[in-house]
Design a binder for these strands. Structure first.
Lengths: 106, 106
DNA sequence: CTGTTTGGATACCATTTGGTTTCACATTAA
DNA sequence: TTAATGTGAAACCAAATGGTATCCAAACAG
């Protein structure tokens, strides 16, 4: 859905959320552990985690009374897909240039 | 302070701005031409262009009374750098994107 | 010169966002 | 059972965001 692309981009638009993603990339963490590393309340961190979850960038697993937040690499796919559009575009232009040069050589 | 990475991510967080970037990817356009393709006022489009410019994703060239908005592939570099830094799983795909941009810069 | 076209700037508005405080609930420990 | 721990949810707030309407300036066309 287009919404996933939008939610993913929105999730990455905040520096705190990008920091969270980087932290979770090296280790799964609970809200409490994350909150210890930020200068904000647990409620604020929770909101960020909700946005990240909406963006499909993290998943949450209940373990006892704890919630383990885990990064979901697949959630980055919509972002990369959108960026890949330019990869195609630039490749096309590069190919056109190459072809033009080759025609000139003949 | 607002880093270039933050400004670039922020610029891409809005769907209208991503649409603008895609439109400019295929053709340079004035603000008037862009406004014709959206259901919003010129002032609103102008604000989006300012955010895109702050993010380093576009450049503007004055030509007579017109201002030609042009995509700046280099502006995507901070985004790609961040994505590449945080997740090793996507290195291959991200490297292709980054190389395409670097080649075009030359 | 006189309009007309193209674009920027400002003031204003409603909604969203990022944060807080507070309270409630469930699970573990004593 | 009682207390402590880990979390979620709601109400609230200031600031940022995305939009509008309006006015103003510069460049082009007649």
């Amino acid at each position: 859905m287009h919404t996933q692309t939008q939610n993913a981009f929105r999730a990455l638009a905040d520096p705190t959320r990008r920091d969270i993603v980087q932290m979770l990339a090296s280790q799964d963490m609970t809200i409490g552990q994350l909150t210890d590393r930020f200068d904000m309340t647990r409620a604020a961190v929770k909101k960020h985690l909700t946005v990240l979850s909406d963006g499909g960038l993290i998943t949450v697993e209940a373990r006892g009374r704890e919630r383990v937040n885990r990064i979901d690499p697949q959630g980055m796919a919509p972002v990369l897909d959108w960026l890949r559009y330019f990869n195609q575009f630039w490749d096309d232009r590069l190919n056109s240039l190459k072809e033009a040069i080759e025609r000139k050589d003949k």
